[in-house]
Design a protein around this nucleic acid. Structure first.
Length: 461
RNA sequence: UCCCCAGUAGCUCAGUUGGCAGAGCAGAUGGCUGUUAACCAUCGGGUCCGCGGUUCGAGUCCGUGCUGGGGAGCCA
């Protein structure tokens, strides 16, 4: 019995092979007088391999009834193709039909809309475009671990279930084992002391607070895992469950943080251009004609760094009328971010030092007492892809800010402890993994870069 | 959550002033050919998103609901 080979490897062969075995799914079939030509894909790469099935095969009648989507196992000889469309093909000695996809198989030999494919998300990875997208997703995940490991970062598994009830501004998904239709009550309100953890629990909206604790022990760390936001967001850039990369570095200020943010975007873009060029070319051909130019530009151009104050001045002097007027103290709207990165600088832009009123409690207060050491990386088409900051390491300043924002300090006793015992300057950021995938593939809807997207009113599959 | 657009065959869409429901692709059948999203011919295929209304008559007009998409807010 010979081993199953991946089509990816066979197509790279530099010589014919007498005995090969492949298994995969039929993409299309073309019958000729004495043969049937089958295109087989096994998911290992974008390309199919052509099978030549001679009518002398004992099950030839069944072979000529093979439909798109059917599964087969083919053993035979890998030879240089006599046709002109491909280098290699397999002349079948034996073609086993593993299972037939009937004519109700929803994927046809033609282009489908992304909207339709979303309704059959369980089958869409069998298409060229989604196969490519999810191969790239896999490579990009690997590249993230490689990037950090090469730089001495340690990978931290931060918890998915958290007990902090306001670690971020985002809406939270409650985690409970209490019966929803008749929860135990105390003074008319749900009694969470009877719940599984003895208090309210939620799905995490960020691994940052955990990562900070480990950065202050292991030096440079990162998390890479699922994140949950219960916001009622209905856009092409938001999902309720997504993956986030969060590095956190001890002895690192905002500049070092920006350096790392720029470096990782460049590294990952370059890595994918190198490792996934065949799949990337599909997107360059059918999704975004400018994709490879854009990616090369992102990988090589120096990111523009400007303060929030400068950004506001640029926007005011742009002569452009925005739907939302910009002024110091107002948040940058999508239209403002797009103007900066797409029209004004035409490359990735890092905006830093935002007014403290716009940002969360943990960001480090600057000497002007008005701004905090925050930074956002904006890229063309996507907008914000990274949000981060230098963290407030001074206990008294941190406690003052929490008081100002009326936060219950006792819930954060352990977080504050880190500022009591050997506190040091440190920084980190969150990088949206799906948004990064949108950047490198040119895919414009975030629902199409995650296997089974979760959005308001939608959790099929 | 707000604003805008769409929903017609398995898929992608057309459907005129309110007057018999259409095309391409897919499928089935037959033919041709070392074929390349193969090609040629024939055939089958409809809850026109749901509900209500206007009208002699509604795919078409009005109201409402649902679903999908685009944009905004929130953000990764």
């Amino acid at each position: 019995m010979i081993h199953r080979r991946k089509i990816f490897n066979l197509l790279q062969s530099d010589q014919p092979i007498d005995h090969v075995l492949i298994k995969g799914w039929v993409r299309t079939r073309r019958d000729s007088k004495n043969f049937s030509f089958l295109e087989i894909n096994d998911g290992s790469c974008l390309k199919n391999i052509q099978i030549v099935a001679d009518n002398a095969l004992t099950n030839y009648d069944d072979i000529t009834r093979l439909s798109t989507g059917s599964a087969v196992a083919v053993s035979g000889k890998l030879i240089e193709s006599k046709g002109s469309g491909q280098k290699w093909e397999i002349v079948a000695k034996r073609l086993e039909i593993i299972s037939i996809a009937p004519e109700t198989f929803p994927l046809q030999k033609k282009r489908h809309t992304d909207e339709y494919l979303r309704t059959i998300a369980h089958l869409r990875p069998r298409t060229n475009k989604y196969g490519a997208a999810f191969r790239i997703r896999s490579e990009l995940s690997f590249a993230i671990h490689k990037f950090f490991r090469d730089r001495g970062f340690k990978y931290i598994h931060s918890p998915i279930i958290t007990g902090s009830d306001c670690e971020g501004a985002g809406e939270l998904f409650r985690v409970t084992t209490l019966p929803m239709d008749h929860p135990p009550l105390l003074d008319g309100k749900t009694d969470y002391t009877k719940d599984f953890f003895g208090k309210e629990a939620n799905l995490t909206v960020s691994g940052q607070l955990s990562a900070e604790m480990f950065a202050l022990a292991l030096g440079d760390v990162y998390t890479f895992g699922p994140t949950f936001r219960a916001e009622n967001s209905n856009t092409s850039r938001h999902v309720a469950e997504f993956w986030m990369v969060e590095p956190e570095m001890a002895f690192c200020d905002l500049k070092g943080n920006m350096d790392l943010g720029e470096e990782i975007i460049k590294f990952l873009t370059g890595f994918i251009l190198d490792a996934c060029i065949e799949d990337i070319e599909l997107f360059a051909k059918y999704v975004d004609k400018q994709l490879i130019t854009t990616l090369n530009h992102v990988a090589e151009a120096e990111f523009k760094r400007i303060s929030y104050t400068t950004a506001v001045e640029i926007l005011k002097q742009s002569g452009k009328t925005f739907e939302f007027e910009i002024d110091f103290g107002k948040d940058l709207q999508t239209e403002h971010e797009r103007y900066l990165t797409e029209a004004h600088f035409k490359k990735p832009v890092i905006v830093f030092d935002y007014p403290k009123t716009l940002k969360p409690f943990y960001m480090r207060l600057n000497n002007d007492q008005k701004t905090v050491a925050a930074m956002d990386v904006l890229v063309p088409r996507i907008g914000e892809i990274i949000g981060g900051s230098q963290r407030e390491e001074r206990l008294d300043v941190l406690e003052n800010r929490m008081d100002e924002m009326k936060m219950p300090k006792q819930n954060y006793w352990w977080y504050l402890d880190s500022r009591r015992f050997g506190s040091v300057e440190h920084s980190g950021f969150g990088l949206g993994f799906e948004r990064l995938l949108m950047l490198v593939t040119g895919i414009t809807n975030i629902r199409d870069v995650i296997p089974f997207p979760r959005t308001p009113n939608s959790i099929e599959f």
